[in-house]
Design a protein around this nucleic acid. Structure first.
Lengths: 348, 348
DNA sequence: CTGTTAGCGCCTTCAA
DNA sequence: TTGAAGGCGCTAACAG
């Protein structure tokens, strides 16, 4: 707990100048192995650790990325996603010598104010954004102000989608739903319903498209029939129950249901139980607990992608070398987790 | 994104020296109102913001608190707790000019290594610990090394419990379970079962004690009968189902069940449905979604307590003024959230 | 390969 | 009440 040793202390013990110590730390190849070893020995024996603030002041970079903690996780079933993403991000960031700093904001405008605060104070030198939405003002502001950032989630506005300044990582929900639907088809189901979010949410529409693709290819149903097999509702458990009732009312009995989220899948299951297979999305702990299939996102891959994009873009913008595979975004493939047997939940 | 202005720039514009600017920021009362106003105007017009690292280097404090993100949230139903706590903590910390830095660790030993790393580098000057357990080595290490910290969760070891160095905030689970049980008693139930965790977890035992107290007072059952009305199991949904079956096998039909967690309550509900009232603990989103009663912890109060203890203890250790109410810990009262009507879930 | 010199932006003496 | 130095711990230039 006493005063931490400084480079001077290390230099003294090793019998070199402060600068040499700094070199051992930041450019070891410049120092003769013999000297280097001596310095490292001194570092070890003193328990020296560079003072982060001093280094940051000197280098003018905080090596810290800021991420906003979303306000109270809506329905909350999928709240654990951010949690798991954060964990993966923190762990991987740490390996690269980056820190993760949290902040909160009341809304997009306030979040922008936080961007300003944190970057002006040099507390943070890059941001990670989650839950992007159509016409998101945050990305525009960040681009305008030249602050590095990566979003977890595609920019769904048409223009932004191809903005070379906008780096993003996302999960390929379409392929996830396609897999889920194909799975049910392979089980012999044909009349597979889709319970989705209201039209207009990029993410929801993308997932719906996956269901539609698979159904077109493998169900043998007409477009008119397919139209009847989908319903939309807000992401709340009991609404999932209502939705599947509506679905069967308008389209007749179904063989299976794929849902845009685990929340809705739970709602559906309270009505259908083990009668027909139901697939959710996100593979939340609830899916595992209650025993239904779900599409799992690899948050670890997402976190890895985010960091690669961030460090690749750091300072030198996008790395010219890796130009072959478009280095400005990553689309991570999700994985269907199949759970057999009747779920633990069902109608009374 | 040009270079941020510095105190010198502000001083130049305001026509004063750098120190005066610094004074306006850190000790405004020392500066004549007239000058102060002029300086503040300059700050505003330049958009000046103090450089966090420079300040930290100079003051030798990071104004940052570190918190570990627990490894993959176990069963995960209650994972959102940390999430909500983090949110509250970040928000309140921000108001006091404190930042929240995340880190991860593979286990207690590794976490201690992270403590060392973060404090040696002056990245963090206090820690918040969650999920404390019996004989936790982390608190001991922190005390030994004189690092400020507060735990969310009581130290369950007998010795540590009263260690004046150990600041903690916890939720009074005992009173929460007492309330839950009293509620069921007031509904006319008498044979109320308890589904808990295996003996030896401080938190679990504390909650069980609340159930026992209420039952002793209001159920009119004998100690022998009460003994039969409790079962223990790991915190996994399907185990909750098994547990309540065991419970009724050994004690006969029950009138109601209170559980040590929402996870177990969900498991219980898959067996009992709306037949008898069931109460969970944590008031997770699942409780709200599926419609059963649960004991809610006020994570915001916990966060507030943690910060008070931390800033109170900062530097000057515990504040001598507030000696009347023991300032070394806080026990926050939880609140029973009653949900009427049959839950959305039940046996098939 | 190593040492010297000069700040990064801020705040805390101490004088004026 | 304001101004003039000095230095927190580190690293980027340049010399040697």
């Amino acid at each position: 707990m006493g005063a931490q040793p400084t480079v001077s202390d290390v230099a003294g013990v090793a019998g070199v100048s402060r600068q040499t110590v700094s070199n051992v730390l930041n450019a070891p190849e410049l120092v003769r192995p013999e000297t280097r070893e001596r310095v490292q020995e001194a570092i070890r024996s003193l328990g020296y650790r560079p003072h982060a603030s001093a280094r940051r002041l000197r280098t003018q970079k905080s090596s810290t990325i800021g991420i906003r903690l979303d306000p109270i996780t809506q329905d909350g079933i999928s709240g654990s996603i951010l949690d798991r993403f954060l964990h993966a991000l923190t762990e991987r960031a740490d390996r690269q010598g980056l820190r993760v700093l949290l902040f909160t904001a009341a809304g997009p405008e306030d979040e922008i104010e936080q961007f300003r605060r944190l970057s002006d104070a040099a507390d943070v030198d890059a941001f990670v954004l989650t839950s992007t939405f159509n016409g998101d003002p945050r990305t525009e502001w960040l681009i305008e102000h030249g602050l590095p950032f990566v979003t977890f989630g595609r920019p769904w506005g048409i223009d932004d989608m191809t903005d070379p300044e906008h780096l993003w990582v996302d999960v390929d929900g379409r392929s996830g739903l396609r897999d889920a639907t194909d799975h049910l088809l392979s089980l012999g189901a044909r009349r597979i319903g889709f319970v989705g979010w209201p039209l207009g949410s990029g993410t929801g529409d993308d997932r719906r498209a996956g269901w539609l693709e698979a159904m077109r290819g493998g169900s043998g149903l007409s477009p008119a029939q397919l139209r009847l097999l989908q319903v939309e509702t807000e992401d709340v458990v009991p609404f999932g129950a209502d939705a599947v009732r509506r679905l069967e009312a308008q389209a007749g009995p179904v063989d299976g249901v794929v849902c845009v989220s685990d929340s809705l899948a739970i709602g559906v299951l309270t009505v259908t139980g083990g009668r027909i297979p139901v697939v959710g999305y996100d593979d939340t702990p609830m899916a595992a607990s209650l025993g239904f299939s779900s599409v799992a996102q690899s948050l670890d891959e997402v976190a890895a992608g985010v960091l690669e994009l961030l460090t690749g873009a750091h300072g030198g913008r996008v790395d010219a070398e890796s130009d072959m595979s478009d280095p400005r975004h990553r689309l991570v493939a999700p994985r269907l987790v199949v759970r057999d047997g009747p779920p633990l939940i069902g109608p009374r």
